[in-house]
Design a protein around this nucleic acid. Structure first.
Lengths: 159, 159
DNA sequence: TGCAAAATCAGACTAAAGTATGAAGGTTTA
DNA sequence: TAAACCTTCATACTTTAGTCTGATTTTGCA
């Protein structure tokens, strides 16, 4: 802003010198403030994305040997912040119930380290890492480390 | 643009009348073009692409000795910005000397499938997949599948 | 047509991953 | 304080991954 005011003052002075070139002066101001507008728009707008969520819930409840089937369809239209997708989803971590240590192991796992290498890095024993990885798989509902990493990245709980 | 030129002409005329209020004139132009810039920035932002994601979740909950089975199908229609970095780097594939089959295996590997599952999917034997994965590791200069997937994604040779 | 690379498969082996169970010490919280 | 959870470690086991050697068949290309 200060710089822009200085430029304006300079242009004003120039105007006094070449008083017959008003158009140039106006043009310069127009250009500067157009660029300022573009810059402002890029800086200040939080890019939002429309997400349409359709959720079909089927419930099968067995009551006294009789199947009770329930179908619920929920449609949601939500505007979400696009920037959020690049941030780590702490709510998701909370929801999955992953502990700090587990997140640490998961993060190292995603870099392609073996259990032994993770153990060395964290100064822990191999069985400990195996316990952690096992718990991670249960919480992420996967069977292998490759699936765990894939899902974790998809859910934005690791970088 | 034509409208804006008209506004400028009008402002120019106004300047002749109230020549001693240059600041107001400049301010008006600044404001108009700032808004123009914001409008331009919003109009010229990257085109967005529609992506449809489907996810099927099965839940089995035991409530009061009754099994409650829930099938949840989540369909997400997400508008995302097209990004050049999401393009597959074919030059890198060529450089690494990865064959078509190897790329196919690598792609499936990245989804978290086991060798056996990849074999089933491609109608090949387990030893064949092991041969391919081994060759992939050599060409990517890695030791494990997790590292292979990590590197492949980093090099943009798989999605 | 013949050669090189790609693709396929096999057997046997080692290494690593993953499962299951148990246990002990520490922290947090109702 | 007790319950719940986190963290750590151990042992024993099964499964999967990865390595090595060797072989046959297909295929693209000079």
């Amino acid at each position: 802003m200060a710089i822009l005011l200085l430029i304006l003052k300079w242009l004003e002075w120039k105007y006094v010198i070449i008083s017959n070139r008003l158009e140039i002066y106006i043009g310069a101001i127009a250009l500067i403030f157009t660029l300022l507008g573009i810059w402002l728009a890029k800086k200040l707008t939080k890019p939002k994305t429309l997400v349409i969520e359709k959720e079909v819930v089927k419930e099968v409840e067995v009551l006294k040997e009789i199947d009770v089937v329930r179908e619920i369809e929920v449609i949601k239209e939500v505007y979400i912040n696009e920037n959020a997708s690049t941030e780590i989803n702490k709510a998701e971590i909370e929801k999955l119930g992953l502990s700090n240590r587990e997140m640490e192991v998961l993060q190292l796992m995603s870099t392609g380290l073996s259990n032994q290498e993770i153990a060395d890095k964290l100064f822990l024993s191999l069985p400990t890492i195996k316990t952690h990885t096992g718990n991670i798989f249960i919480k992420l509902d996967v069977k292998r480390r490759t699936q765990a990493v894939e899902k974790a990245k998809r859910l934005n709980i690791i970088t």
